[in-house]
């Protein structure tokens, strides 16, 4: 089980992630050609301008209106993306298999970042319950996604602190991590892939076509 999770599962997860991403982008690109109002109005500079404003903390009015949420959201996304890539344990696995390695996070910092992800997911979950609008538009799938996103980080922490049976926790960690990677293209986590596309389109519509700002 451990060997399968360590080997083929990782391959499967990345193939599904990359294949799924290519499929989604190719499909949305093809469909967007059918909509005559997308491609003729796209502008690289205005698209990039819009993306930049929404990738920089407090770059948009909506972010300035809710500073606590903005900080939370940025920390969550940064930690969520960077921790798995630069975690010493993960890089070592690549080194063992392929002999390649790269810069890694100090253990203590990685630990804090992982905890931040779990805390942020908890806050998002509480917000889904507490904010009337968010509660009104929350579907069961939103809860499932929160669990899928949190699971690799929770199990990672359990493994780090060696709570429960280490081997079992590690297998759970690898499976939940693989699941997380695989659902990206096929659930609302696809916003990770579509963000630059929808943002660039809106940036072009506002900036290029209408000479207005969209942040």
């Amino acid at each position: 089980m451990y060997e399968f999770s360590r080997g083929p599962l990782v391959w499967i997860a990345f193939i599904v992630l990359i294949g799924g991403t290519i499929y989604r982008v190719a499909k949305i690109y093809r469909d967007s050609k059918k909509e005559r109002v997308v491609h003729p109005y796209m502008s690289l500079s205005h698209g990039m301008r819009s993306i930049a404003h929404w990738l920089v903390p407090f770059g948009a009015r909506n972010m300035r209106m809710r500073p606590v949420f903005t900080v939370m959201s940025f920390l969550f996304h940064i930690c969520l993306l960077l921790t798995p890539i630069f975690l010493l344990g993960h890089v070592m696995l690549f080194e063992q298999s392929w002999g390649i390695s790269w810069w890694t996070l100090p253990d203590g910092l990685a630990n804090v970042m992982t905890i931040l992800v779990v805390v942020a997911v908890t806050v998002f979950a509480l917000r889904r319950l507490a904010h009337p609008v968010v509660r009104f538009v929350t579907k069961t799938s939103d809860w499932v996604l929160l669990v899928i996103v949190a699971a690799p980080f929770v199990t990672g922490l359990l493994a780090y602190y060696q709570v429960f049976d280490y081997r079992t926790v590690m297998i759970l960690h690898m499976w939940s991590g693989a699941l997380w990677l695989m659902v990206i293209p096929f659930t609302r986590i696809v916003h990770m892939i579509f963000f630059p596309l929808t943002r660039a389109y809106m940036g072009s519509e506002f900036g290029h076509v209408r000479s207005a700002r969209d942040w």
Partner: peptide, 22 residues
Amino acid sequence: ENSARLQAYLDTCVHCGLCADA
């Protein structure tokens, strides 16, 4: 009558409610 934009918007919305105050 609708295609890519509708699909992208439906799939991308994470139900966060940040549009409400607008």
